[in-house]
Design a protein around this nucleic acid. Structure first.
Lengths: 249, 249
DNA sequence: GCGTAGAAGTGGTCGGACCAATCGGGCGGC
DNA sequence: GCCGCCCGATTGGTCCGACCACTTCTACGC
């Protein structure tokens, strides 16, 4: 944890212990601190870059880099001509960055990602099975129909992603949605479907999804957990068989 | 996915791609693309900021902001005087940013975070129970002794974090370690211990950890899963009882 | 009263300058 | 000939001041 060194910066503590941190880093900590201390609440507007820079004795360039860093993290949002604002700080915003992981990772890391999903998805699916209402189930059924049916592999991949996302959303846990999102990648999903199609195993993948839906429809958490586990393991099985073969071109 | 706007759509106006994106964003995409395409591999050194800026027709300021963004994401690493390098792209690096979540989130989001941990930790602990070797168990035992014994609450909190981290590390899954790390916060942990001590429930927390250790020692995954679940739920129980009361110090 | 044009405010970009840390090569001492 | 120190070139870090692009608010005219 703690990208920033813990300096017990007690409020009012004046004995400046020779902060040798880079200016930009100090600016980042300063703003982060204002949020953590409640001085800045979600939706609040920050002072202008020029004012903030003056306040910290830093240049506007450094302050801009600090703001850019926090913008990247999803903590701040800059609106051209209007000002800089604190985001709602919802998990989804903060974890957007998270997506780089699934986007960039390769090889062994993909296996690790799948192992984490194997822990999360079964639990999430079981929870969803206990909570799903009729409208949500109808929506799921609609998405399921688009999986593995049409000729377009792209639509199947998109529907697949939507399917799992919709299930996780049923849990009502935005943090879970964000984490799960970060562990899923469109390009990886596409590779899985393409590989299965080539091996004549598309049907197997579709059946996985049907079983998951059925379990949710039956409000059967145990069945849901099992179906989700089976599905993730199927993907993992495929990945282990294809590691290293289709990595680089 | 979706940190980058899809330029694939744009139905009507097919002609000009019209890259209207902000300069800095274009620079970010450029570098990210070079990594995704394998032009830049982990450990590689990037051209100098000045060269990169010239290459893209951008100013050095904008290029620096782009580099700052990717540095924040854990993709790049800048070494003063030496150059900018691509990180090993290990999950731990990429998820460092992740820690802002537990660091900043409050109220309801904390509950959500705990629910995610309730999915991950039992599974991770069960896996660890099946894999732990003697040396790892001895190390765990050593950490366990520091939990809830001495007078220093700070040491207990630190040991608590180490304990769970060590267990997750036994799984050998770096991605899992990183995710779990991001969901844990020292300040939150401190609040939990402080609250329990005030209520005279420190012993209960310590017993939780002892049960987890015992299960690992017995190489009993089921018991480990149960013990971990119980522990997370205990924390969740406490949090629900204290939401809104003791936010800030 | 309403819409519009203009002014002020604010983030976005630029170019150049200088500081500070690093690295490499050359010079001198052993 | 080898080792070590020092100096200069390279490169990231910071600062400044200017201008552009977008938003917002205001005052003007209809």
């Amino acid at each position: 944890m703690a990208s920033t060194p813990d300096h017990a910066d007690a409020p009012g503590d004046g004995a400046a212990p020779a902060e040798r941190l880079p200016v930009t880093q100090r600016a980042i900590d300063h703003i982060k601190g204002m949020i953590a201390d409640g001085l800045l609440q979600p939706g609040d507007r920050l002072p202008t870059e020029r004012d903030l820079a003056a306040e910290l004795g830093a240049s506007r360039s450094s302050m801009r880099e600090a703001i850019r860093a926090l913008t990247t993290l999803g903590v701040l949002e800059a609106r051209h001509g209007a000002g800089v604002y604190v985001t709602p700080l919802r998990p989804g915003d903060l974890l957007e960055t998270f997506s780089v992981l699934a986007e960039i990772s390769q090889g062994e890391t993909l296996i690790e990602v799948l192992q984490v999903r194997r822990m999360l998805e079964p639990a999430a699916t079981a929870l969803a099975a206990a909570r799903a209402d009729d409208a949500q189930l109808r929506r799921l059924a609609g998405i399921l129909e688009r999986i593995g049916t049409g000729e377009s592999e792209g639509e199947t991949v998109a529907a697949d992603l939507s399917f799992h996302q919709a299930i996780v959303e049923i849990t009502g846990n935005a943090t879970l949605v964000a984490v799960n999102d970060g562990l899923s990648s469109r390009t990886f999903n596409a590779r899985v479907w393409h590989g299965h199609r080539e091996a004549g195993l598309s049907a197997r993948l579709r059946e996985d999804h049907e079983r998951i839906y059925q379990a949710l429809h039956d409000r059967d958490p145990d069945a849901a957990r099992a179906a989700a586990t089976t599905h993730v393991m199927e993907v993992e099985r495929w990945l282990r068989g294809h590691l290293g073969s289709s990595q680089r071109d």
